[in-house]
C-alpha cells in the first residue's frame, strides 16, 4: 500500500484509503514510541528541511522529533514575516535550499497556498505544517487518530469543532478528513467566527454551545486567539467564555459522555475552564504523543513512496 500523492498539502479531496493508511501506519509507530529504544532506521540518509516562516513550538518540535525517530537528517529554517522583508524572495530562498539537495520539506507559512507553490518549484516531497487559514493536515490527522483511539471508530460519529472557525487552519482539514472517514461534522461559535458559506461544505452550524454539546459525540475545541481583532469579532473574552466556554457544569448538563479535545495551547478560563482542561488533560496530552506518531507515519509513507 502506498499513498496516492507525493505530497501532503491538505486533506481536501484526499481519498479515504490514504487517510486510513496514515492512521493505521501511525498505530505501528505509536507502539514504537512506547519502546525503550524509540528510533527506527527507516529514513536513514534522507534529508528533511523544516521550513518555518511562522512561529510554532509544538508542531515544529513534533515534526523534528518524528524525523529524528525515523533517523532522517534534519535542518531547520525559521523566519517570520514576508520574504520580501529580508530582501530575498521566497522562491530564491527555496531554490537555494533546494540546491543543497533536500528530500522532503515540512513547511509552515502564514500565506495560504505556499505548500502548493513549493511543489511547483521543488522536487522534494512537500508536507504542509499549516498554511495561513487554509489547512493543517497533520493536526487533523492526529485529532482523528485520537478520536478513533478513544471512540473505536470515526464513521457515524458526530464531531463538533468549536471556536474561531474562520481564522483556523485546523477546522478545514478536520472537516475534510472527518467527512472522508464518514463522520458528521458540525461547527459551533459566534456568527462572526463562522466562515462564509461554510454550510455548503455539508457542515452543520451551531451558534448555541448547549445544543451543539447535546447533539455531538466529540467536541474539538479551538484556541481563541486573544490578540486577534479584539472587539470586532467578539465583544470580549469574558462574553466568549460565558457563552461558549466549556465548563464542567455544561458537560454535566448537556452531555456527560462527550469527548473533549483541544489542539493546544489552551487558554484556560476562555475556551475551556481550568477544571475541564485538567479533566481532559489525559486525552489532550495524548493528542501530542499521537502527533509524533502521525508525523512519523506521514514522513515514512511519503519518504519511501518512490522506492
Amino acid at each position: 500500500m502506498s499513498l496516492s500523492s507525493n505530497h501532503l498539502l491538505g486533506l481536501h479531496e484526499v481519498p479515504k484509503e490514504d487517510i486510513q493508511l496514515i492512521l493505521d501506519t501511525a498505530k505501528t509507530f505509536r507502539e514504537v514510541l512506547e519502546r525503550p529504544i524509540k528510533k527506527v532506521p527507516t529514513l536513514q540518509g534522507k534529508t528533511i528541511l523544516n521550513l518555518f516562516y511562522e512561529n510554532s513550538t509544538r508542531t515544529r518540535l513534533s515534526f523534528e522529533l518524528a524525523e529524528k525517530r525515523l533517523s532522517a537528517d534534519t535542518m531547520n529554517f525559521s523566519k517570520s514575516g514576508s520574504s520580501a522583508a529580508k530582501g530575498e524572495s521566497f522562491k530564491d530562498t527555496v531554490l537555494n535550499i533546494e540546491a543543497m539537495k533536500v528530500d522532503m520539506i515540512v513547511v509552515r507559512h502564514e500565506s495560504a497556498g505556499i505548500p502548493k507553490y513549493l511543489t511547483q518549484i521543488s522536487d522534494a516531497n512537500i508536507i504542509n505544517a499549516g498554511d495561513g487559514r487554509h489547512e493543517h493536515p497533520t493536526q487533523a490527522l492526529l485529532d482523528m487518530y485520537s478520536i478513533r483511539e478513544k471512540m473505536g471508530k470515526l464513521e457515524g460519529l458526530k464531531v463538533c469543532i468549536v471556536g474561531d472557525i474562520a481564522h483556523s487552519r485546523v477546522a478545514l482539514s478536520n472537516i475534510y478528513g472527518l467527512q472522508a472517514m464518514g463522520a458528521k461534522v458540525s461547527v459551533c461559535g459566534p456568527s462572526t467566527m463562522i466562515p462564509w458559506q461554510l454550510e455548503s461544505l455539508g457542515v452543520k452550524i451551531y451558534n448555541n454551545i448547549d445544543k451543539a454539546m447535546e447533539e455531538s459525540d466529540v467536541l474539538n475545541v479551538l484556541r481563541i486567539q486573544l490578540e486577534r481583532d479584539a472587539g470586532v469579532l467578539i465583544p470580549s473574552v469574558r462574553e466568549y467564555h460565558n457563552y461558549y466556554g466549556i465548563t464542567t457544569e455544561r458537560i454535566e448538563k448537556n452531555n456527560p459522555d462527550i469527548l473533549i479535545m483541544h489542539p493546544g495551547p489552551i487558554n484556560r478560563g476562555v475556551e475551556l475552564s481550568s477544571e475541564v482542561a485538567d479533566g481532559s488533560s489525559q486525552i489532550i496530552l495524548n493528542q501530542v504523543t499521537n502527533g509524533v506518531a502521525i508525523r512519523m507515519a506521514v514522513l515514512y509513507l511519503l519518504g519511501t513512496r518512490s522506492e
Binding site: H12, A112, G113, D131, G132, R133, H134, E135, R169, L172, P195, W196, Q197, L198, S200, L201
Partner: peptide, 13 residues
C-alpha cells in the same frame, strides 16, 4: 473575493 472559494482556500477575503 469573499465566497465559498475563500472559505475553502483560507485566504483573507
Amino acid at each position: 473575493n469573499e465566497s465559498i472559494v475563500s472559505t475553502q482556500l483560507g485566504l483573507p477575503s
